[in-house]
């Protein structure tokens, strides 16, 4: 493996891939390698985070990410508190900072936050001593998703270096695409964004990726094909004529997948819109690693909680 892992995470938070070094990413991936084993034990729980409290602050709908974090926290024996926007005082007009300050009175060690505003976790991290973990902020980043995606690729290909990764779909509104582009660039993979021109991000060149407005040429020789969901809730107006037309031009069908490398794997961060961005035959096919992504997500989140639990890394533990 080309990248040497760091000895520790340097910050108290994980708010974005853009703030992690390649060595820190490698450390998280290698720590998750070992934590994957906890899920295969008769007792799927270790006492490591006894006495730690985690607040899961989900201000935007989420099922799998919230469950994944909660399973990770419980497998490490942390105490968990769940706040979601629909059932809390947020709906009564409280600001994020007032909510967070009130939560701090309960002395949590970690706050896992999902928020519709890009940058909300970063601002929270500046004013709150707890470790902040970004579970998705607006259209900015979704770092744990990119890490679990990288982990899944690494299981199949050993190294990320030189991998050709196609990311197709609603790129402009996708924090998953952004975090993946940051991560894959740092780890030496080649990223190709595919979307209708209206859904390509303006800053694609800054992210170090190549862009395509058609799926077929991008798929040539691809090792990984990652399909993204069309995010209807983030479209200010429809950026393409119809779902039907989107499927015709941009969906991953068995015929299109055949253009990629023979060993290529198919990924999707979920939830999938079958028949929109991905054909059911591909989603359930032999090349799909979509369910492995879900399993791996728990190990990645455990790894981040474990590594951040040490606090700042200035004083290495003795013995």
């Amino acid at each position: 493996m080309a990248v040497e892992k760091a000895e520790a995470l340097t910050g108290k938070d994980v708010v974005g891939i853009d703030r992690l070094s390649a060595g820190e990413i490698q450390l998280i991936l290698e720590t998750a390698d070992e934590l994957l084993e906890v899920a295969r034990r008769p007792i799927k729980k270790v006492p490591t985070l006894r006495g730690y409290t985690v607040v899961n602050l989900f201000m935007e709908p989420s099922t799998r990410t919230r469950f994944s974090f909660e399973v990770a926290e419980k497998r490490l024996s942390a105490d968990t508190l769940n706040f979601s926007s629909s059932s809390s005082s947020v709906t009564k007009g409280e600001t994020l900072f007032d909510t967070a300050r009130n939560l701090m009175a309960m002395a949590p060690d970690f706050i896992v936050i999902r928020h519709a505003n890009s940058g909300a976790p970063h601002r929270l991290a500046e004013v709150i001593p707890a470790s902040i973990i970004n579970a998705g902020d607006g259209i900015n980043e979704h770092p744990t998703q990119a890490l679990l995606d990288a982990f899944t690729m690494r299981q199949r290909f050993d190294s990320l270096e030189g991998l050709k990764v196609v990311i197709a779909g609603d790129i402009r509104h996708s924090r998953v695409a952004r975090s993946n582009a940051f991560l894959l660039d740092k780890m030496g993979a080649e990223v190709r964004f595919v979307a209708p021109a209206s859904l390509l991000p303006r800053e694609a060149e800054d992210l170090g990726v190549s862009t395509f407005v058609r799926l077929e040429p991008a798929l040539e020789g691809a090792d990984v094909v990652m399909m993204l969901r069309i995010q209807l809730e983030r479209q200010s107006k429809m950026n393409f004529p119809s779902m039907r037309e989107y499927f015709d031009f941009f969906a991953l069908t068995p015929e299109r997948l055949a253009l990629a490398a023979e060993h290529a794997v198919v990924m999707h961060p979920g939830p999938m819109n079958r028949g929109v961005e991905i054909d059911s035959v591909v989603a359930d096919g032999a090349q799909s690693v979509i369910l492995e992504q879900v399993t791996n997500g728990v190990a990645i989140r455990m790894a981040i909680l474990y590594l951040l639990a040490g606090g700042r890394s200035e004083s290495p533990s003795d013995s």
């Binding site: 084993e37 006495g51 730690y52 474990y306 639990a309 040490g310 004083s315 290495p316 533990s317």
Partner: peptide
Amino acid sequence: DVGPWRPAHQQPVLKET
């Protein structure tokens, strides 16, 4: 010797079980 009551420290590197 690692836990919330301890001063900041570097977490031990995990190895294979």
